[in-house]
Design a protein around this nucleic acid. Sequence first.
RNA 1: UCCGGCUUAGCUCAGUCGGUAGAGCAGGCGGCUGUUAACCGCCGGGUCGGGGGUUCAAAUCCCUCAGCCGGAGCCA
Length: 430
Amino acid sequence: MDKAVVDRIAQFEGQEVLLQGWLAAKRSSGKIHFLQVRDGTGTIQCVLVKANAVEDEFAAADRCPQESSVEVVGVVRKDARSPIGFEVDASRFRVVSAAEPYPISPKDHGTAFLMEHRHLWLRSRRQHAILRVRATIIRAIRDYFDNNGFLLVDTPILTPAACEGTTTLFELDYFGEKAYLTQSGQLYNEATAAAFGKVYCFGPTFRAEKSKTRRHLMEFWMVEPEMAFADLVENMRVAEEFLAYVVGRVLDERRTELAVLERDIKPLEGVQAPFPRIHYRDAVAQLRTHGSDIPDGDDFGGDDETILTKLYDRPIIVHHYPTAVKAFYMKRDPDDPTHCLSMDVLAPEGYGEVIGGGQREESLEVLRAAIAAHKLPEEAFGWYLDLRRFGSVPHAGFGLGVERTVAWICGLPHIRETIPFPRMLEKITP
RNA sequence: UCCGGCUUAGCUCAGUCGGUAGAGCAGGCGGCUGUUAACCGCCGGGUCGGGGGUUCAAAUCCCUCAGCCGGAGCCA
């Protein structure tokens, strides 16, 4: 007898199969049990009729608590009444392990309760949909770079110093020396780009910011491409092509999941390159005509991003941010050093910044001055400055936050559901 | 870190003017051969977040601490 899986149930039509999973829910009419069995790939209704069942097994099914692990033997049958088009006419039923009373019922629960039971919450339909979309986004990210001449060259997670010195780091003891969890692969990417031309790194990053918002995690995944012989314009071109590709892949492969999430896909279908490109100064001017009181030379607040993105039907690229609000390695605009060759991609519908990047400073002298101006210790950047001594070239890159991208594409109100076990401000359990 | 709000049964919540605790769901028992958050009947279930205060009397008013939720700043 074959083992069947729910997401490929059609190929088992008419066959007797073994189904292994968990009892997600059940209903009964006395002599007929309707058992909703979730096997990880999906949920299917197994119909156990008393007249056709082993007596003990029918009684066991009646008593079986929610989320018990079970095995069902039965014949796969097409059924128009089923949401997935198929049911199993069960003949055998076995409880592998009976569950204790399950805390997550089919009814309403509050956020705090669900977060405390995140390890169980992951079993629910909505979480399945989100994490499947996440998996597709990650696969699409890898496919885009792998298929466009980028080499995956991963950067370290344990680092000796701040990449940017602008945000708080998680500090740890490295055999008696201070080390930090990485906040970006950026600086190492510049080294690998000088070795391989076009590279990307992809992994978790850590920021010990005391940020408590719907858009922040302490631990999040970031993909960061870096390109030698590339300028700001090329960087923007790659960013928009890349992002449009990722959204397109989700639309191609995850319609069912987006429907579960009740995501309006119209705005996603509009995510086509090119994206509107707006100089920072023009963005500020637009904001002011729409009620923002943003001062000159300031970075955007969350409200500003929302106001700005709602003026467009697709993601927008804001470029040439003020030099003062960006990291030391950003190349200054040769025509206006108060602004730099940076760019952010802001997602529509109020989701805001999902990509940040820019062209890097390639001049040794300018970079050393920038390190000094940011009051960073030059000795910590010795190897990084070497990159400007041995064949420096114009180069550019960006970073995309995976969880923000998942939240946007899924249409979620909060980033906490976009990763299996979110690390939030002062919350690390489960 | 700052500003709001919340905390009552396993869960989601109600609880009037301060007078000693309620519903739905979940759980248990019984019924039902097509249920889709099934339905019907019965039952068990409470340190009202902790501590302190006011009062004859506090879930209710006051103080304080904690936890959580939302927002700001910072950022992807």
